[in-house]
């Protein structure tokens, strides 16, 4: 177990170094480099040279990378061009709100996907199975923003049941205090992630049902309920732990889109705005933050997997 942990953590560190290199490359992809992005297109060569010198951009690339990583390790993501705040303070303000949105959608979608997936597996190829498969297939093939728009059309414009816009407000308290406005964004994101979770839950449950111990349990005369919940579900859920870790990037992606559909004041919405105002430090800060979250999430998922399933050990 210790050897597995060491190896797995080591891998994550390597990937994190990779993420920092990518962010560094992305920063230098800017046409004319950061100097031009900050000073504007009309900056004279002299101004650019002065800026580059002042910010250490005339040093060799490896030295610049070293300085960059040094700042990263101190948690310094730079300063936003447009908001006159440090990237850290912007993210500290936005991230909890996004975590609330993505987190509640994640929990909700698992709560729906697991029982439905199990039921589909038990009644395989029945009417319910076909119906549920078609629904998840459709949801899976739908652009997530379109789903959001359709829900707005139905529930906000036509039925006036829920507000079309997410709760507005800078603090997380103001978001929580308006649960009705949270309904549509959370449901949109829930449906999007439900679509992929239920497909995996179904196949994972089918696989677990085919195992010998299920046959033994049946032969012992155990009731269907005990077999399902005690023997099958616990085994079928193990791969789902990993799946949740692995689906973090796609969840975050769907989160970005959902935030922009509903004007949800979170990290994703901030990212889109930063892209249209060309606020590169903020963009890169968010990329690094999400990269780190994803790597850590995957690491935790793998460790959970190894803890839950003693058969799995790293070679």
């Amino acid at each position: 177990m210790i050897a597995f942990l060491v190896k797995r953590v080591g891998q994550s560190v390597v990937v994190l170094i990779g993420v920092s290199i990518i962010a560094f490359i992305l920063e230098h992809l800017l046409p004319g480099g950061p100097a031009k992005a900050i000073l504007g297109g009309r900056a004279s060569p002299f101004q650019i040279a002065a800026f580059n010198h002042a910010n250490g951009l005339d040093k060799p690339l490896w030295q610049q990378y070293g300085i960059y990583v040094w700042h990263l390790l101190h948690g310094n993501l730079g300063r936003s061009y447009k908001l006159n705040q440090t990237v850290n303070s912007v993210l500290a303000n936005d991230l909890p709100k996004s975590i609330l949105l993505v987190g509640s959608a994640l929990v909700l979608s698992l709560l729906i996907a697991i029982p439905i997936g199990v039921f589909q597996a038990v009644r395989r190829n029945g009417i319910f199975d076909y119906a549920a498969t078609s629904v998840s297939f459709l949801l899976y093939s739908m652009p997530s923003f379109w789903l959001g728009i359709i829900l707005i059309l139905a529930f906000a414009v036509n039925l006036h049941l829920f507000p079309a816009e997410a709760p507005q407000g800078q603090s997380i308290g103001s978001i929580i205090s308006d649960p009705r406005a949270m309904f549509l964004p959370v449901i949109t994101l829930t449906l999007v992630s439900y679509a992929s979770f239920t497909r995996y839950m179904r196949s994972s449950a089918i696989e677990a049902l085919a195992q010998d111990w299920i046959r033994t349990a049946k032969a012992k005369g155990l009731s269907q309920r005990v077999i399902l919940f005690k023997h099958m579900l616990r085994n079928a859920l193990i791969p789902i732990a990993t799946l949740v870790g692995l689906s973090l990037p796609s969840l975050i992606t769907a989160g970005i889109v959902t935030e922009s559909v509903f004007n949800f004041p979170g990290t994703g919405f901030r990212f889109i705005n930063a892209a249209s105002t060309e606020d590169y430090p903020l963009l890169l800060g968010i990329i690094i933050l999400i990269g780190v979250l994803t790597v850590v999430g995957n690491l935790l998922a793998d460790i959970t997997y190894a803890v839950l399933d003693p058969r799995v050990r790293y070679r």
């Binding site: 891998q11 390597v14 990937v15 990779g18 993420v19 290199i21 990518i22 992305l26 992809l29 800017l30 046409p31 990037p249 796609s250 975050i252 992606t253 970005i256 889109v257 990212f271 889109i272 892209a275 249209s276 060309e278 963009l283 890169l284 968010i286 990329i287 999400i290 990269g291 994803t294 790597v295 995957n298």
Partner: peptide, 22 residues
């Protein structure tokens, strides 16, 4: 494969939005 892992850990939409902005 570590290079692939690294790229996979950054959601592609983020990279795309960044590149499309640049």
């Amino acid at each position: 494969m570590r290079i692939v892992d690294t790229l996979l850990s950054i959601p592609t939409l983020l990279l795309l939005i960044y590149l499309a902005a640049v």
